[in-house]
Design a protein around this nucleic acid. Structure first.
Lengths: 213, 213, 213, 213
DNA sequence: AATGAATGAGCCTTCATTCAT
DNA sequence: GATGAATGAAGGCTCATTCAT
């Protein structure tokens, strides 16, 4: 009877959790199933038994992440009645803060961001299930903010600009921190960055020149 | 005397060039010295002979890229007298178009973007030589555009927002193309995207609320 | 209560049957207990539970095959009164046709042939139970055909020559079909091959020079 | 400087030699590259370096065997003028004795026999290069022996019967030795077996009933 | 009587690196 | 200055087997 014994039958869960972290940290290719198994304190063959192979484990992790994410999205829906300015700010805060969180929910956002900037074959499935719904929600907010008539394409481009900033302040944090010594990515700093993105984006959207101009 | 003989002593150059492309395409870890040597038509041992090991080859490639970049950057300085709106637009166009180019200069931008979003130990050296000068130039443009008094930090955050958009429309192109079927990343599309980023960023910068507000 | 429920306690039987097919098709080493269990719709651990390990399952399969074979061998004994020429032809037909059959009895012949040309540790037990009786029956037929006095050894060598042909036309069918495009191993072709072996062997046995010559 | 140092550059040869033995003994699937490398005192990665992978090593071994075989076949051509009876006997002796030899040439015959009775994807290439020429030579001998008119198919079937016997007395030697205690596969025994096959086959061919009968 | 879960040894292959010329 | 050959560590995966119920 080992001191670190696990309840039998939860290996699959431990595997998903460990794989999520490792894949988020290293990416699909650089992650090794050995590290995942070590982290989840399970056998090398366990990933084959439960998921078939590394790729299918990765896909299961994405599904797992998505399932968890949709569950916890109740936070979002709360502010559905709020003003679009407020909802944009909330969207941005949520998108920026999540990947900086510690522990459980953190790797999921990181993984999704990674899948955006370094897509694997699993991207297609993710688009419809994960990215499109979130993107549509953001698009709707932007559309409300843009009082004047602009093309659908412009609305979407604005949404992408917002997303791009959020991702950048997270992924490029090493460079940003070096170029701006006053930013050390403390929780307060991150809040401040979210504020900036919101202010910047709001100013842009509300003052975007009309198509005719 | 082989038919595909190379000028004596240019193995090192061919290696740098090939490595640049491969590293830009796959990243440091996923790139293999075999592919690099194959592409440069040199021996597997050439990398270790000329550079010691894979990591030092990577560092040499970054230096090589930078050296080349500073040479050709005269183009930039030309528009130094133009209006800041124009110079911002030029900066964005340059930043967005470069990594989409084919051939020679293309991989350098890709490599730098990669180093931003997935830094290696080589990042530190790059910051001062590559990122800071460009960032300072952008910061100067933004500062000119911001007539009102804002903090230095805000100026830099705006600059980062601009950079973030440029990188996003390049790296996340797979997702963006899927979410926006009308965008297929033709050369015209890319020009259009540059226009959008410029319009969006200009609107944002020119209408950014003052700090006191 | 599963929809595909099996009669309780017949797992062992299903295992034997499935294992017979798989071992016959792939050989002992290349067969996997996973495929066997899958084919018999039983659990991976069933093999070890019922038989201890893979090798003992194999041995049980051989016993199983033999037990079944002795039951059905009444067909053979029927023609015991026929002329030796006819009995030789029947023996050859039986030996050649069986491994080409589909389904149940087929794998038993294949398995025995395999055990002849690629023996395992289980061969010893098989010799007395399976090979010797059949070989003796063939030897008796050959002895009748050889009117003149020849050594016992010669009789047995003739019997082996007959067996060798039968096995060859089955096992080397891939090569034989390629070297003889007119042979495609249709049922008619196989009958024709049996005819040839019978004619060839009869001509040989009836005209074999005496020992003294 | 190790005591068992090898001349640099002969690893490929040692690998081919060792692989030939191991493949002949165990078959493609059951052979392990580890055993091959151990036997050839080379590194596990040497197989990949010299041949790409296990399968291509196997194919190279077959080519190697064939190349060697055609070289040494001068022995055959010698008796080209002899009577067909003599040439048939020589053919049989050669075919039966070779796989029983010790050392160098032995595994080549074993490998070819194995490929006949347990074909791999490499068979196709082998048919034209190895099996067909030998089969045609045997066919020609049989044709000379058959004075009467018989169909081409019959000639080839006779040739196959000869081949089948040779292979059987080698591959099924374990069974044959057990059923015939007087046969212990000493060199003298093998000569005796060759004699039997020759006598049996000659008697068969010379007395084969005509087609019309 | 039976099974889903888990295991560790071993498989082939790929990798960056080093050797010896 | 350069290279073909060789190496050992590590990669993902499969296997027969055992565990715990």
């Amino acid at each position: 009877m080992s001191t670190t014994s696990h309840a039998r039958g939860d290996t699959r869960q431990r595997l998903l959790e460990a794989a999520g972290e490792v894949f988020a940290e290293r990416g699909f290719r650089s992650a090794t199933v050995r590290e995942i198994c070590q982290k989840s304190k399970s056998n090398v063959a366990a990933v084959n038994y439960h998921f078939g192979d590394k790729r299918r484990l990765y896909e299961a992790v994405l599904q797992h992440a998505h399932a968890w994410a949709t569950q916890g999205s109740a936070v979002f829906e709360e502010s559905q009645d709020a003003a679009p300015e407020r909802r944009l700010r909330d969207f941005i805060r949520s998108m920026l803060l999540k990947p900086f969180d510690q522990g459980r929910p953190s790797w999921q956002s990181k993984l999704m961001i990674r899948e955006m900037i370094e897509p694997t074959r699993a991207l297609d499935a993710l688009i419809e299930q994960y990215f499109r719904p979130r993107f549509e929600r953001l698009t709707a907010i932007v559309l409300e903010l843009l009082e004047r008539k602009v093309s659908t394409l412009d609305v979407r481009l604005c949404a992408s600009s917002v997303v791009g900033q959020c991702i950048h302040f997270h992924r490029a944090r090493a460079v940003i921190a070096r170029l701006n010594p006053e930013i050390t990515y403390t929780p307060e700093d991150i809040e401040m960055l979210a504020d900036h993105i919101a202010r910047f984006s709001l100013a842009a959207i509300e003052n975007l020149p009309s198509d005719e101009e």
